[in-house]
């Protein structure tokens, strides 16, 4: 399986710095074989999340194998859900929002994705962090 087929990872934080920092950790620990996009902050540059920007990040990290999104607090999740709903229908079922901590979840999901695992396995690995 070629690297282009690896599941993509999207990091959504209220803070652009947190999002960038988490993406830096993924790049350093996992490498470049996984499509990755990080987005944070609202349209005014303050803390928050922006549906349009999240959609852009999904596009940037898009893979035919799908995209796993990692979010931080409440609004990041609801705005990510909204962004997914606004994506073209044929893509929607290949986008999942993981119930996992942002940084650890992104690193774990990317590690799983780097081995060519399917979207379900990528999400399961990130969400395994929440078990016990």
């Amino acid at each position: 399986m070629g690297e282009q087929k690896n599941v993509g990872i999207v990091i959504v934080s209220h803070s652009a710095k947190v999002a960038e920092g988490a993406a830096d950790m993924v790049r350093q620990m996992v490498g470049d074989s996984v499509p990755l996009a990080a987005v944070g902050g609202n349209a005014d540059g303050g803390l928050g999340t922006d549906v349009g920007a999240i959609m852009g990040a999904i596009d940037k990290a898009w893979s035919e194998s799908g995209v796993a999104i990692l979010v931080d607090l409440g609004g990041a999740e609801t705005n990510s859900e909204m962004a997914v709903e606004m994506m073209p229908e044929e893509r929607r079922e290949r986008i999942v929002i993981c119930n996992a901590p942002l940084v650890e979840g992104a690193v774990m999901a990317a590690t799983e994705a780097s081995g060519g695992s399917p979207l379900d396995a990528v999400r399961a690995t990130a969400e395994e962090l929440m078990a016990n």
């Binding site: 620990m29 996992v30 690193v107 590690t111 780097s114 081995g115 060519g116 695992s117």
Partner: peptide
């Protein structure tokens, strides 16, 4: 991470 990446091959 490196160990699991290698194992997965």
């Amino acid at each position: 991470v490196k160990l699991t990446q290698l194992a997965k091959r």
